[in-house]
Amino acid sequence: MNQFKDLQKLIKLTGDRAKLDAKANETYIVYKTAEGQIVKEYSDGNIIPITERDSSHA
């Protein structure tokens, strides 16, 4: 049993489930891209980068 492959599969399944939940609730998921950018991805495929100004709570 390859634990690394199992972990990769679990991470992928978790992301797929998050996308389904976002679609059902008409919202978006947030994640960090391979380039290090944090983005919002909507169920229609629209991806919007989050800027520091967007992430501020002040």
Results as ranks from 00 to 15, higher is better:
Ile48Gly: 01
Thr33Asp: 07
Glu26Tyr: 09
Leu20Val: 10
Ala24Cys: 08
Lys32Phe: 01
Ala34His: 06
Ile38Lys: 06
Asp54Val: 00
Glu52Asp: 13
Glu35Trp: 01
Ile50Gly: 07
Val39Met: 00
Thr27Pro: 05
Thr27His: 08
Asp44Lys: 00
Gln37Phe: 10
Ser55Leu: 11
Gln37Tyr: 09
Gly45Lys: 04
Ile48Lys: 12
Gly15Gln: 12
Arg17Tyr: 15
Glu35Pro: 00
Lys32Asp: 06
Gln37Met: 03
Tyr42Leu: 00
Lys23Met: 12
Tyr31Gln: 05
Ser43Tyr: 06
Leu20Asn: 08
Leu20Gly: 05
Leu7Phe: 13
Thr51Cys: 10
Tyr31Lys: 12
Gln37Glu: 13
Met1Ser: 12
Ile11Gly: 10
Tyr28Asp: 07
Gln8His: 08
Asp44Phe: 01
Leu13Lys: 14
Tyr28Glu: 04
Leu7Ile: 13
Lys5His: 04
Gly36Asn: 08
Lys40Tyr: 03
Tyr42Asp: 00
Val30Gly: 01
Asp16Thr: 10
Ile38Trp: 15
Lys5Tyr: 09
Ile47Asp: 01
Lys5Phe: 12
Glu52Ile: 07
Thr33Trp: 09
Ile50Arg: 02
Arg53Ala: 14
Gln3Phe: 11
Thr51Ala: 05
Phe4Arg: 09
Ser55Pro: 00
Val39Phe: 02
Thr51Asn: 09
Ile47Asn: 04
Thr14Leu: 11
Phe4Ala: 15
Gly15His: 15
Ala24Tyr: 06
Ala34Cys: 05
His57Thr: 15
Asp44Cys: 06
Ala18Arg: 15
Gln3His: 14
Gln3Ile: 13
Glu52Leu: 12
Pro49Arg: 11
Asn2Met: 04
Ile47Tyr: 03
Ser56Pro: 00
Tyr42His: 11
Ser55Ala: 13
Phe4Gly: 03
Asp6Ile: 11
Asn2Phe: 03
His57Glu: 15
Thr51Ser: 15
His57Tyr: 13
Tyr42Glu: 02
Ala58Met: 09
Pro49Ile: 10
Leu10Phe: 09
Ile50Ala: 09
Ala34Phe: 07
Tyr28His: 14
Glu35Phe: 03
Ser43Met: 06
Lys32Ile: 05
Ala22Thr: 05
Gln8Leu: 15
Leu20Asp: 15
Glu41Trp: 01
Gly36His: 11
Ser55Cys: 06
Gln3Ser: 10
Ala58Phe: 13
Ala22Lys: 10
Glu41Tyr: 00
Lys12Ser: 10
Glu52Met: 11
Ile48Arg: 01
Lys12Val: 01
Ala18Val: 03
Lys12Ile: 14
Thr14His: 13
Lys5Asp: 02
Ala18Lys: 08
Leu20Ala: 06
Glu52Gly: 11
Lys12Pro: 00
Thr27Tyr: 08
Asp54Gln: 07
Leu13Gly: 06
Ile29Gln: 02
Gly36Arg: 05
Lys32Val: 05
Arg53Ser: 10
Glu26Pro: 02
Asp16Ala: 05
Ser55Trp: 12
Val30Ser: 09
Ile29Glu: 05
